[in-house]
Amino acid sequence: MTAHKTGTREEWLAARLELLDAEKEHTRRADELARQRQELPWVRVDKDYRFESEEGPASLADLFRGRSQLIIYHFMFGPDYTAGCPSCSAIADGFNGFEVHLANHDVAFSAVSRAPFAKLDEYRKRMGWSFPWASSHGSDFNFDFGAAHTKEEWDSGLARYNFAEQDIRPTTAEQQSSLDDFAQSIVDTDWRTYRSEGPGMSAFAVQDGTVFHTYSAYSRGLDGLWGMYQWLDRAPRGRNEDGVWWRRHDEYDK
């Protein structure tokens, strides 16, 4: 017998209709937040960022691929990683394949990481993904848009992430060892190397040949991009998690 509250179909329907009102209010609030995002002032991008893509060397404007809007996912894959971050990989499983729909709605999409392109492309093939993925190796792009931290930021304890300065260094030798073990298990690096990257997304627009930065989000601001969580939030036990339970999709049997 389940320990969860049970009831009749009539009781369920009454509770569901009450919840529906709350869901509709949540939807209306989400619509309002989307409007506020679109009303943010645009900031001109003056730096000449360079990338390596499937088509060869590219500028930020080239990543638009003829569209007027561009969404970039800052995928955690540093130069010294042996594989992409499992969390970013789970998010990528959710957005793989939909770039064709965005492209036909005047929105280009690309993931961007600091690892060399050959390493990204090899991992993409392993994962069976098709979305565009560019390397910003040697560029300031990830640092300037809040998705990577410099040595100076790390040493000072003032790494800027999610619009605030954070000290992401371990505070004890025990924590250092635990975090190093975690990083070693997922990308074969120590914690400092792993967490010098951060997940995020940024949006851009191009107008009259000028590129503008319009929006960025990090941390829980990426929650809506985790496709699996949108389904789990509607499952009977919700997210039902304690720590990191997900894996790269080809590693669950291991």
Rank of each mutant, 00 (worst) to 15 (best):
R16M: 12
E10F: 14
P57N: 04
D242S: 13
F182Y: 13
H249T: 09
R44W: 03
P86Q: 11
Y81E: 02
A205P: 00
H213Y: 12
G66F: 00
L120G: 02
T171G: 13
D121I: 05
Y218T: 06
E11P: 06
R37A: 13
W133Q: 08
F143I: 12
G138D: 05
S177A: 14
T210Y: 05
S178C: 11
G138E: 06
S130P: 01
E153W: 12
G227C: 13
L158S: 14
E39I: 01
E55F: 05
G157K: 01
E11F: 05
E23N: 15
E23H: 15
E55I: 06
Q69I: 00
W42T: 14
R126F: 08
F204H: 02
A115V: 06
L20N: 15
D31V: 12
E122L: 10
L33F: 14
Q176A: 10
D208A: 07
A92D: 04
Y49I: 06
D93F: 04
F98A: 04
A111E: 03
D188Q: 11
T214E: 06
F98T: 13
Q166M: 06
G198P: 04
K151W: 15
D121A: 11
W129V: 08
R9V: 15
P170Q: 08
D93P: 03
R37F: 13
H74C: 12
R169I: 04
D190A: 10
F51Q: 02
D188M: 03
V43P: 03
I72E: 09
A173Q: 12
A111R: 06
D223W: 09
T171H: 14
A83R: 09
D233W: 02
F98P: 05
S113M: 01
L40A: 14
W129F: 12
G209M: 05
T193V: 05
E32F: 14
Y49V: 06
A173N: 10
P57W: 03
Q175A: 10
Q175H: 04
E241L: 12
L60H: 06
R169N: 13
N162T: 09
P86N: 08
A61S: 13
E122Q: 13
Y49F: 00
E23L: 15
H213V: 05
S110R: 02
P116L: 02
M127P: 08
